[in-house]
Design a protein around this nucleic acid. Structure first.
Length: 593
RNA sequence: GGUCCGGUAGCUCAGUUGAAUAGAGCAACUGCCUUCUAAGCAGUAGGUCAUUGGUUUGAAUCCAAUCCGGAUCACCA
């Protein structure tokens, strides 16, 4: 139990005894004491002043004295400044926490509960490689899923492949017309990039053909729809839907190239899925749900035969759910997929990690499911994140400003290599170990960079900043971990050494320990907010605080054996907490770097 | 136009369930490697918290209005 959750009931109890008034723990404001004041935690008194008609100074004195009397073992001192009651917590509390937790490698892990949560955190199109936007999505979803797992939830990670549709046909048609039978193997190109190149080529060809048509007198708008290559793609889509064997075979072949490429990238970035869904298998689902909803008058038909839902009562519009020709649209598929997932996993909650461009769409999805009185509707949760932009603005495929996932990882690996060679600290590593280290650092830098920002907010990805391994970065935290491990390789805390619980803590020791004690609270916050960035910030602060401690005090050459043991324990606890919090972000921490 | 999100140091971001003198990192400048890893540490400098008004003992935080930026409102996905 964290210190704050221990303090609050005590204050409630004391207030009751002193003033015969009941307070809820939520009524209390207890913050960590600012460094410029004496004390560890601070109770803010202003809210009581009016109620009890006493001065803050007097209240503080009375409450402080009562607390000290009630728990003399916990509190060591108090002081009142203006409306703030600063409470000193005795070293014994912190030392007991250290003693009982330092060796826990799985610190933070909670007992299992009975909640099942399904997390959909990747939804790539199979016509082009993954880019920076996909990475934020993947890193975020993976991390949120791991946070849920470590706090005891059963989690199912899923991916939905958008593997059909006009965009896929564009790559296919272009490959048929211009590919001359080339394959990823024959060209030595990664499969997803290979297919993506034809998608780009489609755009180039299409543009050329538009110009020809316009020169022949067609309007630009008309021409856009009528280039030979566009018509071919549209025909291919119809053929695909009709199950044309040739088209299906081509589709399977090209998609398999893409999956091979995706799998390589997913493996590298550590994305894993318990269940894959494919749009080609789900795009017809949902029609039954619409039929059902029509019968229940949740939906209605217009004269042209199209099916709609009226969401104006909820401040939205009328929304189409089936086209007039009876074919389904995006939202229809999503209704079907939500149902399918529930059928398969009976989830309590269903998370969708999707960019905030789709806020409206996700609101509609949940609302429709609620109108349909689906048992799982309340559990639908859209974890909306902001787009990743470049310093020059939004990434645009057409302008070639999209940052490719594989490229950026490779670039960061190179930086890691150069930096590591320059420092020369791991000259004894074999090539395999070196490659692993470079990858650990590169992925760590990238994940930390994308996860350290509040997911809800738009963020700017500055390529120059991302290759900086100093300061508020993944490699900084990784480095601190390696530093600690270097000490612990020399000596581990002794299990037989007499207890350190009666030691005296120096300011830097205490500062670190107080921070380490907050790990559980931080984990709670990241869980409640579905926000990995609080863990990233915490891991950085912990590393920074350790480095300050490390510079000021020697562990191995401590003043006494007892001090050495205490610092070894502190070091081990720090490394465990850094490792745990970084692992929840999907970041590995090296033993040496 | 309706709805939603954002505007904090030169840049990137914390802080937004109200609380003490608004914090980090980068960039700039000054120091510290015969001592457990200098991918580090210590320090200097840098702010009308978009603007105006309001509520409050107390506002970056809550309310209102305004300005600026973004997203969305398709028989696209």
């Amino acid at each position: 139990m964290s210190i704050v959750s221990r303090l609050k009931p005590l204050v409630v109890k004391v207030l009751k005894e002193l003033y015969s008034q009941d307070f809820r723990e939520d009524d209390l404001t207890i913050n960590i004491t600012k460094p410029e004041f004496e004390g560890d935690y601070t109770l803010v008194l202003f809210s009581f002043v009016k109620q009890f008609k006493k001065s803050p100074e007097q209240l503080g004195k009375e409450i402080g004295e009562a607390l000290l009397k009630t728990e003399p073992a916990l509190f060591s001192s108090f002081n009142v400044i203006k409306g703030f009651l600063n409470l000193g917590i005795g070293d014994a509390y912190w030392l007991y926490f250290l003693q009982t937790n330092y060796a826990d490698k799985r610190i933070g892990l909670r007992p299992a509960n009975d909640k099942t949560i399904i997390v959909e955190y990747s939804s790539p199109n199979t016509n082009k490689p993954l880019h920076l936007g996909h990475l934020r999505n993947n890193f975020l979803g993976w991390s949120v899923a791991e946070i849920l797992k470590t706090t005891g939830h059963k989690v199912i990670k899923t991916c939905i492949y958008n593997d059909r549709g006009i965009h896929i046909c564009k790559s296919m048609v272009t490959w048929l017309q211009f590919g001359n039978g080339a394959t990823p193997d024959s060209t030595g190109t990664k499969g997803d990039h290979f297919v993506g190149d034809y998608y780009v080529l489609f755009g180039v060809e299409h543009k050329k053909q538009v110009e020809v048509l316009v020169a022949d007198g067609m309007s630009k708008e008309e021409a856009e729809k009528n280039t030979p290559i566009m018509l071919a793609a549209q025909k291919m889509l119809v053929d695909w839907e009709n199950g044309d064997p040739g088209v299906r075979a081509l589709w399977q072949k090209m998609n398999s190239w893409v999956y091979e490429g995706f799998n390589e990238t997913y493996k590298k970035i550590g994305s894993d899925f318990d269940k894959n869904y494919f749009e080609s298998e789900t795009y017809l689902m949902g029609k039954e749900i619409v039929e059902d909803g029509l019968a229940k008058n949740v939906f209605f038909k217009k004269d042209d035969g199209s099916t709609w839902i009226d969401l104006t009562a909820d401040g939205l519009d009328e929304k189409l759910v089936l086209r007039k020709d009876g074919t389904s649209i995006y939202i229809t598929q999503d209704l079907g997929l939500a149902d399918k997932k529930y059928e398969q996993f009976h989830y309590d909650q269903s998370f969708y990690i999707i960019a905030d461009e789709q806020n409206y769409h996700m609101k509609v999805l949940k609302l429709i499911l609620q109108r349909l009185k689906k048992p799982y509707a309340e559990g639908i949760y859209h974890l909306s994140y902001g787009l990743v932009e470049l310093p020059t603005g939004r990434m645009k495929t057409r302008e070639g400003t999209v940052v490719d996932a594989d490229d950026i990882i490779e670039e960061l690996k190179n930086v890691a290599k150069l930096k590591t060679e320059e420092l020369g600290k791991v000259k004894d590593f074999n090539p395999g170990e070196l490659n692993e280290l470079y990858e650990t650092i590169a992925i760590g830098a990238l994940k930390f960079f994308l996860l350290r920002v509040d997911p809800k907010k738009r963020m700017v990805f500055n390529p120059e900043e991302s290759i900086d391994f100093h300061g508020f970065t993944g490699p900084f935290v990784q480095y601190t971990h390696a530093r600690i491990k270097s000490i612990l390789r020399k000596e581990k805390p002794s299990a037989t050494h007499p207890s350190t619980v009666h030691s005296q803590l120096l300011p830097k020791e205490k500062e670190l320990l107080v921070l380490l004690e907050q790990y559980g609270t931080v984990l709670d916050q990241s869980l409640e907010e579905h926000n990995p960035s609080v863990l990233a910030i915490y891991a950085f602060n912990t590393a920074k605080t350790f480095n300050t401690f490390y510079t000021e005090h020697s562990v191995m050459n401590a003043e006494s054996e007892e001090k050495k043991q205490l610092r070894l324990q502190l070091s081990e606890l720090t490394s465990n907490i850094i490792a745990s919090s970084m692992n929840l972000l999907g970041i590995k921490v090296p033993e040496r770097m």
